[in-house]
Design a protein around this nucleic acid. Structure first.
Lengths: 174, 174
DNA sequence: AAGCGCATGTAAAGGGTTACATGATTGC
DNA sequence: GCAATCATGTAACCCTTTACATGCGCTT
């Protein structure tokens, strides 16, 4: 249950609506922690009923902007320090790689080329995203750059791996 | 639904029981694709009723060993070539990093030190696991080494990132 | 007035974890 | 005989995604 704290954290930067938060989760956090709008609206409802966030304003098109409350700020800060870190990783592409020996060499090469392209593109996108808010110096932007750096390294590592895997196994083993 | 194909893939190496598969998922795939036994037994039941695997033998303690059928082998091979690759990544530690600016510098340093230690240890474990089956040359072992390489690179990248993040932001920003 | 993007939700289904439950065999 | 480990399963719960549904407001 970290979406809860993810929303609190984003709201700590300033008020936002469910729609805003969904968009940010999609374009900025989609690469590291995707979340869809139904989950977000549901969680916002729960957070609000618990007093961790509150409706700040109602706008056109029945837009509801939430702001974080003192209790909410205390909650996210406590979570960051005391909460258990969940190190779970679940990557289908790596599971697939366990079974590469079942693939025809040609298919495998194609697959790895495509994977490499995909990861390189993601890494580039994350880098571009970071560059876009280049000079911003607020604490939250600085944190975001740290996150982006992680994403770039992560996807870079996977891209390099895919390239390595494509060339290293001496063509057609099996 | 990739657990299904994960099980088929492991059974392609040879017959195994649910217990065996659960153990392998825990010790070898736990770092990249964890799965618990209830899910595994349930999926084995489904695969079996669909004729993709079959009970090979019943042993002591009502152990049931499954083997993959021709249909099952065809299914996993088709999946590897035609199946959509799911590139979803969901890493709580990276979500946390978006909110580093909400932490006290001391707490953050402690956190990053612990993270670095954790990832370095995981990388080392994966490396050790690969070294343990060092000389094996069968196709499936070779694939496993490719997977392990990915895991080592991945966790290595995260360890490096944590170390970098700890030192780079000039001590106490905010 | 038509169409797009904003904005919020509900419902159903799928995927996964945790806790509970049970029993057989082996080694001490 | 006792404990540990092998071995399988069920039930309840939680989390997440996909599909469905609706309506407002702005632009052309």
């Amino acid at each position: 249950m970290s979406l809860r704290h993810g929303l609190l954290g984003l709201l700590a930067e300033g008020p936002a609506s469910g729609y805003d938060l969904a968009r940010r989760f999609q374009e900025m956090l989609g690469a590291i922690y995707p979340a869809q709008h139904p989950k977000i609206y549901a969680e916002l409802g729960r957070l609000s009923s618990e007093g961790l966030i509150a409706v700040e304003s109602e706008g056109p098109r029945r837009r509801k902007a939430y702001r974080i409350t003192d209790a909410g700020l205390a909650e996210i800060k406590a979570w960051l320090v005391e909460g258990e870190v969940d190190h779970t990783v679940r990557l289908q592409p790596l599971l697939r790689s366990v079974f590469f020996w079942l693939m025809e060499p040609d298919d495998l090469r194609r697959h790895l080329t495509e994977e490499q392209r995909f990861y390189a593109e993601r890494a580039a996108r994350c880098e571009a995203y970071a560059a876009a808010r280049g000079s911003g110096d607020s604490p939250s932007v600085q944190s975001l750059r740290v996150t982006t750096e992680a994403a770039v390294r992560l996807y870079g590592a996977l891209a390099d791996w895919a390239e390595w895997a494509r060339t290293v196994p001496p063509a057609g083993d099996r």
